[in-house]
Nucleic acid binder design. Structure first.
Length: 189
DNA sequence: TCAATTTGACCTAT
DNA sequence: ATAGGTCAAATTGA
């Protein structure tokens, strides 16, 4: 599911920090709360990279960060890289709550009693299928959402115009996961 | 009205 | 100089 990253060339302070990498076909909820603090276009990469830090960094001095970047179009694939670890009580508590009381859509995947086992691993992902509820994922799904949304106002006949909303993305990805056949769609890039 | 996100500017290492 | 990472003011939305 995830693996310790081997981004260890050079001797910068960052490369020595422990990092964890995870590729996922959906934007998954890892049980922690994150605050986005930046977004960058990466050269030779098709999609923007989003930068998050733990929401409790300020009042708990939690050093955890993560980067999320879409790395593939056809089957949507997102790479999340975690830097450091959580030492904040608050988000740890939240992740435990998420693990022990998964929501209805994901509970079927946690039927076996491995909550403790999951918690001892790092990072503590709650469920591979819990549905993201925040707007945080829209830019990773469609980095140009804002511009396209504005284009729609003036050129609704543009075939590249996106007329789906964020909710449709979730439904679409969920559908692709829950059914064996893939749902054809065109993101228009 | 307030807090999270967006986004260009700024910083730092290469 | 360039690319990646972070800051912070403006924007957005609940």
């Amino acid at each position: 599911m995830y693996y310790q990253s081997t981004i260890a060339e050079g001797n910068s302070s960052r490369s020595k920090a422990l990092t964890w990498e995870k590729d996922s076909s959906i934007l998954f909820e890892d049980g922690y709360e994150w605050r986005k603090y930046g977004q960058k276009k990466i050269i030779n990469a098709k999609y923007l990279r989003s930068y998050y830090r733990c929401s409790y960094k300020s009042d708990e001095e939690c050093a955890a960060m993560k980067h999320v970047q879409r790395i593939q179009e056809d089957p949507p694939l997102y790479r999340t890289i975690y830097y450091g670890h959580h030492n904040c009580k608050t988000s740890l508590l939240n992740s435990e709550i998420t693990l022990l009381e998964p929501n209805s859509t994901s509970s079927m995947f946690l039927s076996f009693n491995d909550s403790l086992q999951i918690k001892e691993q790092y990072p503590a992902f709650s469920s591979p299928l819990s549905v993201p509820t925040k707007q945080e994922s829209i830019d990773a799904i469609n980095p140009y959402h804002n511009q396209i949304a504005q284009d729609q106002l003036t050129s609704s006949d543009n075939p590249l115009s996106r007329d789906y909303k964020l909710e449709f993305d979730y439904v679409r990805h969920a559908t692709m996961l829950s059914s064996t056949k893939s749902v054809p769609f065109n993101d228009g890039f």
